[in-house]
Amino acid sequence: MDQKNILLKVENLKIQFKQRHGIVTAVEDVSFQIQKGSIIGMVGESGCGKSVTSRALLRLEAPGYIERGKISYYPPNRPVVKIDQLAPRKEKIRTIRWRDISMIFQEPMTSLGAMHSIGNQVGEAIRLHLRTDKKTTKRKVIESLRSVGLPRPEYIAKQYPHQLSGGMRQRVMIAMALSCNPNLLIADEPTTALDVTTEAQILDLLLERQQALGMAVLYITHNLAVISKVAEKIIVMYLGRIIEEAASDVLFYAPKHPYTRALLRAMPKITAPLQKKLSTIAGEVPDPIHRPFGCTFHPRCTEKISGLCDRTVPPYVQADDSIVACHLFSKLKND
């Protein structure tokens, strides 16, 4: 792969949480790369470690901790930053947050303070990171609110978060996240709490801004369909591991991993002929504290190979154009 174009590289990341019942491994052996200006989708059911992984990129993983692994950030025209070695609370990582890598969350209410007006909050972010004077800040606030399609930005700047609808709040978050022209935007399920129409609008907006500003986007969602037409590459996670990684078309039309396949078939599709019943994946995602041995998906897998899948962790293998972690594709199976 083109080494020069890499923006962010994650290698063998493992994140754990200490809990009452013991240590929970939320993310294990996760590796991926983000190219400059690309859109990466990350999918998986809730609890599979999407948020923990993405927060770790900004060192916001607390109360969890990085047990192992590397996160390297390659800013253009600057030396590489080893994010995993930065102290989570120190100055260095804080300058990277927002300015280089910024993030939007599922529930914008929690990241927007309730007590300050929209204008103040967006202004604060701009002023802190770009060190602009009062007048420029104000102009930039209005500019950025307008750029995310909010009508009457001067009026909205004076309003408080609870006076806006969910979709509008998410737009404000996007405006804030993009106000410093980051190289990477992490969007952690920004549309999950919204209805499909608003979701589509937010997605369109993100795409438009991405094209205008040329940043890379890591778009996290639990719904494959949302990013199918958008992302260049899609990473599928299950129980803390990446189980498949492929270009978006490949993933959709030739999914490899049994989980990906089952997931795709479980979605009601508006274009498919009407079925009487949807096919489902049996059972539920196990609690991370009881991670199954071997392949974490094997208790629910219809194609599991007894004696192999329940014993050994499947390695990542290249299968056609995808990278898959499944014994159906690994050499071990034939031995």
Binding site: R265, L328, F329, N334
Partner: peptide
């Protein structure tokens, strides 16, 4: 790919009684 060619019987996925081991 060898494994993929054999991809077997995808129709028999059932919703069984759901049980989750935990604390």
């Amino acid at each position: 790919m060898k494994g993929y060619a054999k991809v077997i019987n995808l129709q028999n996925i059932n919703t069984k009684t759901v049980n989750r081991p935990l604390a």
